[in-house]
Every structure is written in structure tokens, then in C-alpha cells.
Simulated assay, not measured.
Amino acid sequence: MAEFDFSQAIGALRSKYDTIAGAVDLDALRTQIKELEQEASAPGLWDDPENAQKVTSRLSAAESQLKRIESAGSRIDDVETLVELGREEDDADTLAEAQDEVGNLDKDLSDIEIQTLLDGEYDERAAVITIRSGAGGVDAADWAQMLLRMYLRWAERHGYKHKVMDTSYAEEAGIKSATFQIDEPYAYGKLSVEGGTHRLVRISPFDNQGRRQTSFAAVEVVPLVEATDHIDIPDTDLRVDTYCSSGPGGQGVNTTYSAVRLTHLPTGIVVTMQDERSQIQNRAAAMQVLQSRLLVLKHEEEAKKKKELAGDIKASWGDQMRSYVLHPYQMVKDLRTGYETSQTQAVFDGEIDEFIDAGIRWRHQQRREAAKNAE
């Protein structure tokens, strides 16, 4: 067996590390951590628990990323020293330990590299996944349930918090659809590459003649849009008109400028309020109603954007992104990236990280090419 080439392996590790460090910009990351530390230590931070949670979560994620990258750099130096020591003492055990560490480092750097590619607008969000059975009858419903189990097992393997939010069961077997949430940072960035049509080829367990059946299921992945229970409205976005109230209420109401009309200039929404005797009270009430209307509008816009992000997934021939073949051979193959494996049962048990990583790299390459073509 050929001797392991430590010089080439360590050189490759350093090259990968330098690429990651350049992509992340470690100085900018350290600056971000300092700024987040100042926010986290500010008096009254927890007066707004939702914002405080965001700040502390971002700080924790940034610190973890920096520590992981710096640790990898130190480990490369350490393994190089270990190789020198093993060669000086002609110690096979030390060199074997160094070779194992090179393998571990390469895997860890690949994981870090994948994280650096999750730079989309919504990539850091939690994910909501919906699986729908497509063409293929009862086999498709069973296939949709198999996919649900696969993704839930993947989440369990990583210790990700998850919950099934809705399930619609089919009449004979399987499910018509299911929606579940994975509440983990970057869950959307990782799982968004799983969106599309998944095709299964197998001997149908529901066919008494044992014929081969092809069935389809659609996987839709959208980011969990953060709920907002308050809308800040800058004064510059408002036109405030006051006028005399009309209707019953007595002389004071009808002769003073207590009624208020608020116009939200960006949207054109108009709210009037004249029930209260005081202009201040009417303005406060009108602001409350305006905020409620803007909140509804925001949610509608978010729902529209999530639909655009999810895309139009038909779950039929011609648009499948991955094939799972159990007969006449065993193979799972991603039709976009070309990644494949014959370990079908492992895939169904949630071992899909290689497919996800390949999908993330493929998507990044697609974005780079699109940006280049747009120049």
C-alpha cells in the first residue's frame, strides 16, 4: 500500500481553511461579536424578550462559528507537529494517529465550508416542510409517509427540535400530506435544497400481482417567518388630520377638534376615530387599529413571499429532483448534483447529509453562474 502523503494532505487542509477564512472574513466576524456583546450587555435588554432572544442567539452562533474555525486552524498546526514527531521517532502509531486526525479535520472543514455557503436571506431561519403525495395512488401516499419518516429521523439524528403540525391521512395507507417544523438555526438553508419532487420505484406492496410501481411525492420547504406583534410606524409615514366630531356626544364633542384621521402614506391605509372625547385618546385608538391592519398586511405579504420561495412543485413525471430505486437495483440518486448511493435503507433512516451538502454546493454554484451571467 502506498505511503500516506502527509505534505499533500496537510497542504489541502490549509488551502481549504484559507478559503473558508476568506469567505467568512474573520475580522468582520470578530467585530460582529463585539457589537453583539455590547447589545447583549445593554441595560434593559430583556425588556423586549423577543429581541433579546434574537441578540443572544446571534451572539452564540457567531461565537461558535469563530471558535470552530480558529480551532480548525490550530488543529492543522498540531497535526503537522504530530507528523514531524512521528517521523523523527519513526513511530508508526503516532503517524497513524496523525492520519486519522487529517481525515477528521477534512470532514470538519467540509462541514464548516457548507455553513459558509448558507448565506441566503432566509437561510438562518427555522424551516417548515410540507410533504404531499402525488401521482401513484396508494403507493404515492405510502411514499409520502416514508419521506416524512426520513426527514424526522434526520432531525432526530442531529438532535434538532421538531414537531409535526398537521397530518392528513389517506384512506387505505400512508398520508395525503403532512406539515412539520424543524426549529433549528439554518434548518431552512439546509433543507431548502430538498424541495422538489421525489420519485420512488419499487415492487408495490399494495399490488397483489407484485408489479413494479413508480410513485411521486412533493416536498415543499419554506422559512419560518418570525411573528411580529407590533408594527413601528415612523412619524414621517403618517399624515394626521383632526376635525370636529359628528353625531351624538354633546356640545364638547361636536365643537372641538377631537376626531382624528390617520393616513399611512406608504400603503394608503386610512383610519378614522371619533368615539372618544379627547383627541389624544382618539389618536391612540386609531394608531392601535392602524397597527393591526398593517400587521395583517405584513402577514399576507409574508405568506405570498413564502409561496414564491416554495415554488410550484407538481409531484409528477418530468420535474423530479431525486430518484429512489428499490427494484430492479438499489440506488438513490440526486438528478441535479449527480450524488448517489446504494445504501437505500440508510437514506430512509435519515442519513441524507451527503445529499444535503451536495445540494448546497450545487445551489451555490448555480448562484455564482447566474451572477456571472448577469454581469
Rank of each mutant, 00 (worst) to 15 (best):
K16Q: 11
A346Q: 13
P205N: 09
G250Y: 06
N373H: 10
L224G: 12
P266I: 03
E369N: 06
N104W: 09
A96K: 15
D77A: 03
P223T: 06
V296A: 11
M165A: 08
I269N: 04
R283V: 04
A144R: 02
V138Q: 04
G210I: 03
P185M: 01
E194D: 00
V102R: 09
A346D: 11
V325P: 02
P205H: 07
G134I: 01
P328N: 04
D111H: 12
D27T: 15
L66T: 12
E184N: 12
Y257A: 14
G350V: 04
K305H: 14
A140H: 00
L109V: 06
T267E: 07
G44V: 12
R336I: 06
W154L: 00
E220W: 13
K34E: 02
Q366V: 13
G103D: 02
T31E: 14
V24G: 05
G311H: 08
T167R: 05
I112M: 12
G250M: 07
I10P: 04
L13T: 04
L36K: 02
A310C: 05
Q366C: 10
E156N: 12
H230D: 14
E194F: 00
A141H: 05
D139N: 03
G196P: 00
E121T: 03
T255R: 14
R30A: 14
A9C: 10
G350C: 03
I69P: 04
A178S: 04
Y243E: 05
Q279Y: 13
E340Y: 05
S64N: 07
E351P: 08
G195R: 01
A227Q: 10
S192H: 06
G134T: 01
L262A: 02
I360N: 01
W317F: 15
T341F: 01
K314H: 05
E97G: 11
